[in-house]
Structures are given as structure tokens and as C-alpha cells.
């Protein structure tokens, strides 16, 4: 059965997570209840995802390199390129240990309930690897092309690993939709012995309405950009569907890895790295 390869350090079969981030000018538009620019919301989401990856791999002795990780930004200079900050600025795919060692820890403020209903601000340390950027157009097809070039080498080095998982986070207005769909198709056709590359799309949209996760068809989606991103998304593999269904309604056989204004952390938790436990509520 595909998509069952063990993500293992001892067998040198890591998984690969590649994030493609829309950094085009439209990402300056406000989004969500607090009206922050989409680019800021996405930077927070990416840093949160990377933080989740590092924490998942952290053990007593340090970190276990279960994943190779990359972040590609597309927009500035009307091109696509790796978008790491600071120590990683010239890097492409990096191991989790490198990710952990290069985190910039900054202090921000978080509001919490003081216990009597009033809110107080407390300082909170947060890691970051990625800054918000919003300029120029949306060369999404170039991001898919760079992803394919990067993953070609990775697959050659890890032919029996769990296939790479690509997350494209965007507000969904590519320069050339047809070319983007075509390049996305080529990316999805790449494969390890355990299955094809998985392409998941996370749509950040200013359209109001409820979050949509793993839809089965495009008819229920609110606009043509969401529909295009749905078409570009991989079917959720059976093991992922089983996990997604465990605590919620059943996920249909035709469900795709597409999220509309929904949290993407869940998608990372689907990737199995040994004995896990339920999220404790």
C-alpha cells in the first residue's frame, strides 16, 4: 500500500516537507478578524509549522532528523527562490537539526486571561525562520518548477522514502493559471517507491465564510481560485484520511489536500514518525 513508508532516522529514510509561499503584492491585503496583512498571517503560519516540525522531532538527546525542510517564496523579482532568513539565507532543503540551530528567537507579547476575566499581556519567546514579504506579481508556476527541480535530487537520494509533501500557501491569484496547473501536475507526477509527491494547497482568502478542509469536489468552493487550487491538490492518501477521520466526520475517498482559511498544522501531524499519542485536549 502506498504512503506507508516509515519515516526513520535509523534507516536514513526521512520525509521531505517543502513550503511554497505566495509573497506577491496582493498578500498585503488585510485578512481575518484582526485585519493583519495576509503576508503577516502566512509568515506566522509558516513559522508555526516549522516550530511544530522542530518540536515533533525534539527528543531528550537533541533532535532527530525525521524531515528535510524547505521554504520557497514566490513574487519578489517576479521569480521563485528559497526564502530562509538569517543563518539559512543561502540554504535550500535543510535538516531539522539545522532548522533548530538556526532559529531566531524573538520576544513578542501574548494576551492571556489574568483569571478574573481581564486580559494581561505577557512576554512570549517565539522562533522564526521566515519574514513576511508582499510585492510584485504571483509567479506560482515558477515555484512549482523550482520545487520539482529541488525534489528531483531529493528523490534520487531517497528513492524509498515517504514521498515529499509540498504545501502551497497562497491567496490564489497566479499570473498564469494554466501554466501553474500544468507545473503542479508535473510536480504531482514525481514519485518515490512509496507514492507520488503530495501537493496540498492552503488558500488564504478574504472571502468570509467557514473554514473548509479536505473537500471532495470543487462545487462547494467559493470562487474560481479556490476551485483551481482544489484541482491542483493531491487526493488525500488512505492513511491520512483515516487519521483525519479519527476525531471528526468521515473524510470521503475523493477528498483532496485542500484547506480554505483553515489551519495547516494538522497536515504535518498526519506524517507518522513512530509511536504517537492523541492530541490531548
Amino acid at each position: 500500500m502506498p504512503y506507508t513508508a516509515e519515516v526513520s532516522v535509523s534507516h536514513n529514510t526521512p520525509a521531505c516537507l517543502l513550503f511554497l509561499v505566495d509573497q506577491s503584492g496582493s498578500m498585503q491585503d488585510p485578512w481575518g478578524k484582526n485585519g493583519k496583512p495576509k503576508s503577516e498571517a502566512v509568515a506566522i503560519a509558516i513559522n508555526k509549522l516549522l516550530d511544530t516540525v522542530v518540536l515533533r522531532c525534539t527528543k531528550n538527546e537533541g533532535v532527530r532528523d525525521y524531515f528535510d525542510v524547505g521554504v520557497i517564496g514566490y513574487g519578489p523579482g517576479q521569480t521563485a527562490k528559497f526564502a530562509w532568513l538569517g543563518k539559512l539565507c543561502n540554504s535550500k532543503l535543510v535538516s531539522v537539526s539545522k532548522l533548530r540551530d538556526s532559529a531566531e528567537i524573538f520576544t513578542t507579547k501574548k494576551k492571556i486571561d489574568a483569571g478574573d476575566g481581564t486580559l494581561i499581556e505577557i512576554p512570549v519567546e517565539m522562533p522564526k525562520w521566515f519574514d513576511p514579504v508582499a510585492e510584485a506579481t504571483t509567479p506560482m508556476h515558477q515555484a512549482f518548477k523550482l520545487a520539482a527541480e529541488t525534489l528531483k535530487d531529493w528523490i534520487a537520494q531517497h528513492p524509498n522514502s515517504f514521498p515529499p509533501v509540498v504545501f502551497n500557501i497562497t491567496d490564489g491569484m497566479p499570473d498564469d493559471s494554466a501554466q501553474a496547473e500544468s507545473e503542479a501536475g508535473l510536480l504531482r507526477n514525481m514519485a518515490t517507491s512509496d507514492g507520488n509527491v503530495l501537493l496540498f494547497n492552503v488558500h488564504i482568502s478574504e472571502k468570509s465564510g467557514q473554514e473548509i478542509a479536505f473537500p471532495e469536489n470543487e462545487n462547494s468552493l467559493p470562487d474560481k481560485f479556490a476551485q483551481m487550487l482544489f484541482r491542483m491538490s493531491s487526493n488525500l492518501p488512505t492513511p491520512f484520511r483515516a487519521l483525519a477521520s479519527k476525531d471528526g466526520p468521515p473524510i470521503g475517498e475523493n477528498a483532496r489536500g485542500f484547506l480554505f482559511n483553515a489551519d495547516a498544522v494538522k497536515l504535518i501531524e498526519f506524517i507518522d514518525i513512530g509511536t504517537r499519542v492523541q492530541e490531548i485536549r
Binding site: 531528550n60 514518525i273 513512530g274 509511536t275 504517537r276
Partner: peptide
């Protein structure tokens, strides 16, 4: 007892 891989100090 099976300590979870996804937590630290789980063998202990």
C-alpha cells in the same frame, strides 16, 4: 509500557 516517540523523556 510503550513510551511515545513524539514526546521527550518518554523512555523514563
Amino acid at each position: 509500557c510503550d513510551g511515545a516517540t513524539t514526546s521527550s523523556y518518554s523512555a523514563e
